[in-house]
């Protein structure tokens, strides 16, 4: 069984066996467990407390930040850089968007784009320094972006407790953003915000950009063989830094979308685990932006499915995190995500 097909079968079998084991360990009958997960993920088979639309609603808004951070990681990897700092970029992006959203009073057509762009810009800045340090001083971006994750955590914590804290509240959180800065829902039938549409559109744009333009070709060339790209006259440093900043902008946008479309403020302990989710979905999609939509959907469905299981039976919802780790290992066993060695 050395063939790729055989590996897929074995890996998928092990992953399903583990999921089954976890459901069993949670003292939930296995058949019931799978039914609850499916109900939460895709709404089929239909049930009384979780309708079809509820399930899709949860899945789509779970997948939105995952897709954006997944695109961030995929884009950086296409340029040969590992962005493990999406979590930090997401945090500063969320913080910036929340500040813009609460601080200013502007008409909606200006305010919302302003808040989203501020989030993206903050993420881009947070990504720029590690990329620049890598190009100028050879500091490895994996380590610097890990450090920047924690710098972002404490920096925004300081901001939200001392500088931009909501004066009306004792809790370390910002004031709620103005209604003009909120992302509207897609429709009365679906409580997912337009952030989801934005994320999918960006995935398609990124696909076109990477595979249909000269810039994209040069960026990918920089990623796959920097020496050859340099010899061919491609400004590899500039391409890599631009791609990494765009990657940071996407992660920052993920934070902004979370603030403008879901939480409506920034607070201490803002969820930033989407950074690691992004690595997983980009890896499973082979760093292809369009395929990332699919893998992000899978992860969103997994989250929302296990959440339904959690609500219905009290089984810990961390089953989703375990399965993500397993899926990454599964992808690695398929020899996905191999990069050219340094130098």
């Amino acid at each position: 069984m050395k063939s790729q097909g055989g590996r897929v079968l074995i890996g998928a079998g092990i992953a399903l066996a583990l999921l089954t084991g976890l459901i069993w360990l949670s003292k939930v009958p296995i058949f019931v467990g799978y039914r609850l997960i499916l109900q939460g993920a895709i709404g089929i088979p239909p049930s009384e407390n979780a309708g079809l639309l509820d399930a899709w609603d949860n899945t789509l808004h779970e997948m939105t930040p995952i897709l954006l951070t997944g695109l961030a990681v995929a884009l950086a990897l296409q340029a040969g850089l590992f962005n493990i700092g999406a979590a930090g970029q997401l945090t500063v992006g969320a913080c910036a968007a929340a500040w813009i959203g609460a601080r200013f009073t502007l008409p909606a057509p200006v305010h919302l784009p302003f808040a989203l762009l501020a989030g993206a810009a903050a993420g881009a800045v947070w990504a720029w320094l590690p990329a620049w340090l890598k190009m100028k001083r050879g500091a490895h971006e994996v380590i610097t972006t890990i450090m920047f994750n924690y710098l972002a955590l404490y920096f925004t914590h300081w901001l939200v407790t001392e500088v931009i804290k909501d004066p009306e509240s004792d809790a370390p959180k910002t004031a709620a953003i103005a209604e003009t800065a909120q992302l509207p829902f897609i429709g009365s039938f679906l409580f997912t915000s337009w952030g989801f549409v934005l994320a999918v559109a960006l995935a398609l744009v990124l696909w076109a950009l990477l595979y249909q333009t000269v810039w994209g070709y040069e960026t990918r060339a920089t990623g796959s063989n920097p020496d050859a790209a340099q010899a061919a006259g491609i400004p590899t440093h500039r391409r890599a830094i631009t791609a990494f900043m765009m990657s940071g902008a996407l992660a920052g946008l993920a934070g902004a979308v979370e603030v403008c479309g879901l939480h409506y403020n920034f607070f201490e302990g803002f969820p930033s685990g989407y950074g690691f989710d992004g690595i997983a979905v980009a890896l499973l999609a082979g760093n292809h932006p369009a395929l990332t939509i699919g893998t992000a959907y899978l992860f969103g469905a997994l989250q929302s499915g296990t959440y339904n299981l959690h609500v219905a039976t009290g089984a810990p919802k961390e089953i989703a995190i375990i399965m993500q780790g397993v899926l990454i290992l599964f992808a690695l066993s398929l020899r996905l995500g191999k990069r050219a060695p340094e130098k």
Binding site: F276, A280, L283, K338
Partner: peptide
């Protein structure tokens, strides 16, 4: 598997945190 060390490390972190 000659996997990328960083990605494998991420999988380890997720597994530990989840488990």
């Amino acid at each position: 598997w000659r996997a990328d060390h960083v990605i494998s490390g991420v999988a380890v972190i997720l597994l530990a945190s989840g488990l």
